[in-house]
Design a protein around this nucleic acid. Structure first.
Lengths: 221, 221
DNA sequence: ACCTCTAATATTGTCTACAACTTTTCATCA
DNA sequence: TGATGAAAAGTTGTAGACAATATTAGAGGT
């Protein structure tokens, strides 16, 4: 599931990853107050490492912190989702544009191979893998941009929030196949070294995706 | 100079602001290793608050940190500058688009007033204020987007890096007046509630700006 | 002189204690 | 009964000590 190996070296890393995982997957519900002392006993580490983990979560926009009061998990809302996807549209559009310029031929070949392997899964409607496959696709294009700021913002920041929305709304829907076709077209544009088109297609793709998840959100929230 | 009042409530805030200021303005040169103990004695605070300040600087991409080794100030490079401006183009383009949709009439009026007041300064070539004025202009449009992610990424993150490049390369140049005209056109588009045009003009504006600073960088680095 | 291994030093990571602030509790008074 | 305010309890912020890791210095061997 995690394509990019984040390896925890310090104890604080471990706490950060664990906490993030539990929040994204809804084990710790959105809106929850994060008590440093409580978490430190739960995780069997000192308050200092929990504190550092929470600070890093704040930098990811996964928790909100107020001085002398504490941190709480962000709450999910239609407005928040829209804002998130507006930024995604902007950044991933640029990523696609840059990918069309900077991806190597072999990277593009591998991207095509990925789509081919996913093609079967789409027919068989293996939704779980499709969801992971979607992440994998976007992830490769982001990396293909070769822009470290872009990569960091999307991979370390926004994508965990995106996943949080998806997981907690129980994604996987009728958009699977159409999204797959959109992926195809984007790769085609990258293949043709057409930055403008790649950006435009990616932006549309994300807009559609936003509309889809937004519709679900209306029902479940 | 700081239009958005960031008020330091904790000791860690103060250390963070001070450290950021010294780095951006080049008092602490880029590439410098940041020793926690050294800074804690220099600032007369505990290592814990320095450590937290450094963590926050890392989240801003102003310092790079490695586990068990330490943090050092990022080094400026042509590649880094290009990457930074690519992200700026993307995010501020979107900000202009959203501003065209979401800015209130009074906000737009005030923005026009700002430009009018700057018009005189441009004629008198008061470069210092022009530089600050440029920041003010961009800042208002970013706020006008009403997108909290966008605002946070740009204001808390990228802009300090942008300033770092500008300060350390000694900006203020022949682009002042032409940049001013571009600002006019952008506001016009926002005024007309034309998101597409606003975005396009902002993106071009930033691209020009990038080319300008890039030229300077070739000489001085 | 150069490389290697080891010990000493220095730096970062973690833990615990204390200080400052916030929230809650509860007694007092209108 | 409800409001007010002070004390108590709980939480976060800061400090300093200890542990673990990285860097440096130096002795020994080739």
């Amino acid at each position: 599931m995690d394509f990019f190996q984040e390896q925890a070296v310090t104890s604080s890393d471990k706490a950060f990853f664990r906490l993030r995982k539990e929040i994204v997957e809804g084990v710790i519900p959105s809106g929850t107050k994060l008590s440093e002392t409580e978490l430190s006993t739960k995780y069997q580490v000192s308050r200092a490492v929990v504190r550092e983990a929470i600070n890093r979560l704040e930098a990811c926009n996964i928790v909100e912190r107020k001085a002398n009061i504490g941190a709480r998990v962000v709450s999910l809302s239609p407005e928040g989702l829209i804002e998130l996807y507006q930024v995604r549209e902007s950044l991933e559009g640029m990523a696609a544009r840059l990918a069309a310029q900077h991806m190597t031929a072999t990277e593009i070949t591998e991207l095509n191979a990925l789509l081919n392997s996913q093609s079967d899964e789409v027919k068989n409607a293996e939704l779980y893998y499709q969801e992971a496959g979607d992440l994998d696709f976007h992830y490769r294009i982001i990396l293909g941009s070769k822009n470290s700021h872009l990569i960091s913002m999307l991979v370390n920041g926004l994508y965990h929030l995106v996943r949080m929305y998806r997981v907690q709304l129980g994604m996987a829907g009728p958009r699977v196949t159409s999204a797959f076709d959109e992926h195809r077209h984007i790769v085609q544009a990258i293949s043709n070294r057409d930055p403008e088109l790649a950006e435009m297609l990616m932006r549309r793709h994300i807009t559609y995706s936003k509309n889809n998840i937004e519709a679900k959100l209306q029902n479940s929230l």
